[in-house]
Computed example of a mutant assay.
Amino acid sequence: MHPSPVRPALAAVFVVLGFMFATAFNTSNRALDARASRSSDLAGVVRDMEREREDLKSRLASLRASVSDARRKAAQEAGVRETFGRDLDEARAAAGLTLVIGPGVRVVLDDAGTVPEGAEPGDCVVHDSDIAAVVNALAAAGAEAVSVNGERVTATTPIRCAGTTIMVNSTRIGAPYEVLAIGEPDALEAALREDRVSGPLFGDFRAVYGLRTTIAHGGSIEVPAYAGSVAPAYARAAGGGS
């Protein structure tokens, strides 16, 4: 009996099919492995991104806290600077180191035009003591700033005679003498007229010796700043350096 020619052909077909099946199976496995690998890689990337996001959130919260703290400190420092600046301005104004403007009085003291009969020439001129009396009366009445012929009066201002002229802050001045003072105008004028020393300048001395003196109110009196040196030669703050 002769072998059937179909069997070898079928065997060959089965071999080919088996090879194709094995190849397809291996390809499928490799594809699955690749997808699994990619999925694993993507999962790792996602985890890394999540960790980075959490880290960024933490850093952002820290930065926000730092900014908030910086703003708080800046506000505190600004408040300190504002307070210090305001106190410094007030101290400078009180010390006479700044130009100031406000209501007050303008006082003019001038020598007599002629010497009245029976009067002494020395009685008919304005003396340093007269100017000092006016300044003292104004200060006692609460004047916040005073100047004499443009010279700001401070705590150490000397008013003294130098021959036929008067010295204020080491500056020679001459008649007429203009005294500007900032304060309550009525109170300042009342003090000048009622003071035991300055009062006669606007009363008896004016009538008897011909002194030309006036007091005028002003709503915007301008008193200049002190222009001299304020550095003490001997005094220093207690507990401070040399």
Results as ranks from 00 to 15, higher is better:
V107C: 07
R160H: 05
G142V: 11
V153R: 04
T164D: 13
P158T: 13
G163P: 05
E144A: 13
L97V: 10
V100W: 00
C161E: 15
A141D: 03
V126K: 08
N149V: 06
G85E: 12
A94W: 01
G142I: 12
R86N: 03
A137Y: 08
A93S: 09
T164P: 00
S147P: 04
V115T: 14
E117F: 11
V100S: 09
E120D: 15
T157S: 15
N136I: 07
R160Y: 09
A119E: 10
A143F: 03
A133Y: 05
T98L: 15
D89C: 01
V108L: 12
G122V: 08
R106P: 00
A95N: 09
A133N: 11
G104H: 00
A145F: 09
V153F: 07
V108Y: 09
E120S: 15
G150K: 02
A119L: 01
V108K: 15
V108R: 15
A133T: 07
T156I: 14
T154L: 10
A162V: 02
V125S: 09
V148N: 01
R92K: 13
L138P: 02
C161D: 11
N136F: 13
G118R: 07
G142W: 11
I101D: 05
V134D: 09
A95W: 04
V135K: 04
I101R: 14
T164Y: 11
I159M: 14
G150W: 01
R160W: 03
A137G: 05
A143D: 09
T157V: 08
A91H: 04
T157P: 02
L99Q: 12
V134F: 14
G150T: 05
V125I: 15
V148K: 03
V146F: 04
R152L: 04
V126E: 09
C124M: 02
R86S: 03
A94I: 02
A95P: 03
S147Y: 07
T114S: 10
V134S: 11
A162Q: 06
A133S: 15
A94C: 02
D110Q: 08
V148L: 05
G85N: 13
V100E: 01
A143H: 03
P116K: 08
D111G: 14
P158H: 10
A94P: 01
V134E: 09
D87H: 00
N136E: 15
T164F: 10
I159Q: 13
G104Q: 00
E151S: 12
V115P: 04
H127W: 11
L138E: 03
A143P: 04
V126M: 10
I131Y: 12
P103C: 01
L99I: 06
R152F: 08
V135A: 00
V146K: 00
G85D: 13
V135Y: 11
L88Y: 05
S147K: 07
R106C: 09
I159L: 12
I101L: 04
G142F: 11
A93D: 01
A91K: 11
S129D: 10
N149F: 14
